[in-house]
Design a binder for these strands. Structure first.
Lengths: 194, 194
DNA sequence: TTCGTCATGTAATGGGTTACATGATTAC
DNA sequence: GTAATCATGTAACCCATTACATGACGAA
């Protein structure tokens, strides 16, 4: 059971929509999918090679994939059948591995390609993870009420508050997802639209 | 000008108070100082060695440093003069390097060892950094209002909100710090004490 | 023709983790 | 005596970044 790292999954998810070449993938990963702020080419291109080697993607000819003009020196990649299968399997599985910050953000941004049951599973798993984290943080604060100086304490207080907010956000999403069992709409622009 | 990484600075800050041995350092870094959730020994011990080599810390004898009973096989470390000097220099400088998540958290948790002017400088630098980040995120949202599906959009909305909250937090801290020019108190337990 | 951007790639390096190996001390 | 925890350390590895190297294309 080959494990799929975040980068691989991100590329898979990106290519599900349409074939893209490396440069485009990087730009979109940076602005669209969760945890890839500024992925370097030093990671991306080797990853693409690995994935070709693993049979998940393949280079498509110079069909000007999703492009405007025509250029020579670029290589567009598309999912193979194996790649598509892997993506689907990965989206459906959503094991305990999918609940840390990066994995969750990525999977969340891939929600459009999933069914409601999976979405709920992931949201609840993430919620569980954060609840554990909250307990940890509270325990931490309790154990060092004495020693900690005011700044350290404030940092902890704030960290805890942040995670609690995150849980509230998840609760809203979960509720939305539940009430949308019938009627296929999105996450319904939560609370304040800023 | 030897650059001081977060780990080195964290250890320096930790040992400023009292000598500690590796095992203790790890436990405290994990629960007290900002960004060291579960530092591995595979990082810690080599770091201690490096720091001894660099003359920043030195092993103190079996004085049972800050311990309860007496044990043999452990090595407590204390700051050398050079180490203390480096820590002070580092705390006072607070360059552009100190405003990303980890650096900021670390420096914040070391605020107790700093003067108000430095604290303000760091808080404002961090604020600046986050403002830039907000602009980036807004720009991102603007540019892809069309393409993005609802989930991606919600992720971005939420990410933006989180950073904006962070800025509000900083604003409060900055205000507190300013109004405390006279009267040496801590961060004055902001808003809700949960 | 030259500059900016598009586009791909490799090598060196960095900063961490996991797994491994070892042994002392304490509590039962 | 034996299990849990304290305590230190090394080696292998992972995964990313930075720096480097190359070159095509479009616009001025």
């Amino acid at each position: 059971m080959a494990k799929t790292d975040v980068l691989t999954l991100g590329i898979l998810g990106m290519l599900a929509e349409q074939p893209l070449h490396g440069y485009q993938i990087r730009k979109r990963l940076g602005s669209e999918l969760g945890p890839f702020r500024a992925l370097s080419y030093g990671s991306l291109y080797p990853a693409l090679k690995r994935m070709v080697g693993a049979g998940l993607i393949h280079a498509v000819g110079e069909d000007d994939a999703a492009g405007t003009g025509s250029r020579r020196s670029r290589i567009a990649y598309a999912l193979t059948d194996a790649g598509r299968a892997r993506l689907e399997q990965e989206l459906a599985s959503a094991g305990a591995n999918s609940y840390d910050d990066d994995s969750f953000d990525l999977r969340f941004s891939l929600f459009g390609q999933t069914d409601s049951a999976t979405r709920l599973r992931i949201l609840e798993g993430r919620r569980m993870r954060l609840s554990e984290r909250i307990e940890e943080l509270q325990e931490m604060r309790r154990r060092q009420r004495e020693r900690a100086d005011a700044y350290t304490a404030e940092l902890h207080r704030h960290g805890l508050e942040r995670v609690e907010r995150e849980v509230e956000w998840l609760d809203q999403l979960i509720e939305n997802e539940r009430s949308a069992t019938r009627g296929e709409n999105g996450p319904a622009a939560s609370a304040g639209d800023n």
